[in-house]
Amino acid sequence: MADTLSIRRVSATPDAYIPISALRSAGPSYAKLVDIGACIGCKGCEVACKEWNDLGVEPTANFGSYQSHKDLSPKTWLLMRFNEVEVDGNLNWLIKKDACLHCEDPGCLFACPAPGAIVQYTNGIVDFNQENCIGCQYCVTGCPFDIPRFDVHTRKVSKCNMCVDRVEAGLEPACVKTCPTNAISWGSKDDMLALADQKVETLNARGYDNAAVYNPAGVGGTHMMYVVPHGDRLADYSLPSDPTASPTPMTALGFLKRIGAYLMGFGVLGVVGHFLRYGPERLEEHEDHEPRGDTGAAA
């Protein structure tokens, strides 16, 4: 288990600069699988997350939903969202365990300008290092799932870190451990994919013809996956159907930055070259010349 924290990617750091740790053989790649059909909405996982990560209580009020809080926050990294939707004439709770999905291609990390503020380990966990964060919130812009939350007081962002300290010690994340119905499973990504297929088959057999695994390709797959009973209603679960880690403007920006670096470099070389060719324009040398052009025409 010693190499679970080998580094795969670091924000604002070319891969070539990542030190030896990356040279170590990649350790196992983990994943969390959330079987939404097996969730009874007890929110034990929310409590376990608060406790393990020492996030403290955030007062809330009844706003007409079974949901505990309205939104994620710097101190609420996990929120069970209860979307009330009518399916075939029946009221359904389409629950979503809203937390970081630990994308294989993390849009947050790609967007971050601060070296070392976001790290992706070879085990798949994407973690924020607040001491390197400059508080620009570009990660919020880059995340297709609207996960990172900015704390206006500390001017740092935070989100679920998959209990990286537990995983490093060979334990499962706190939410997995606490779930009374085993709706959350933990294991290698391959095992979890196999388990997910099994669960989909079971759901199909029970009449959920559209049951599906949520492991979106646009972000290279995720290290928290869902088994969604109503796979045709992703929007009702507040799951984007086509998330991407490299949206058009960001791809264009990356490309332009490359060109821009050359342009600015050549710009400097250009004026240096001009100076070496022509030198300073010494007016004494023009002493005997008439002023240029026909001054009378100057407007």
């Binding site: 949206p247 960001m250 600015m264 710009g267 300073p280 324009e281």
Partner: peptide, 30 residues
Amino acid sequence: QWMRLAHYLATLGGGLLLIVHVYLGTIAYP
């Protein structure tokens, strides 16, 4: 994201202009 792109393009334009401006205002024309 589009604003980041626009902000960068302005930076690139302003940077290139500044290189020429500073050059002409200083060493090129004593």
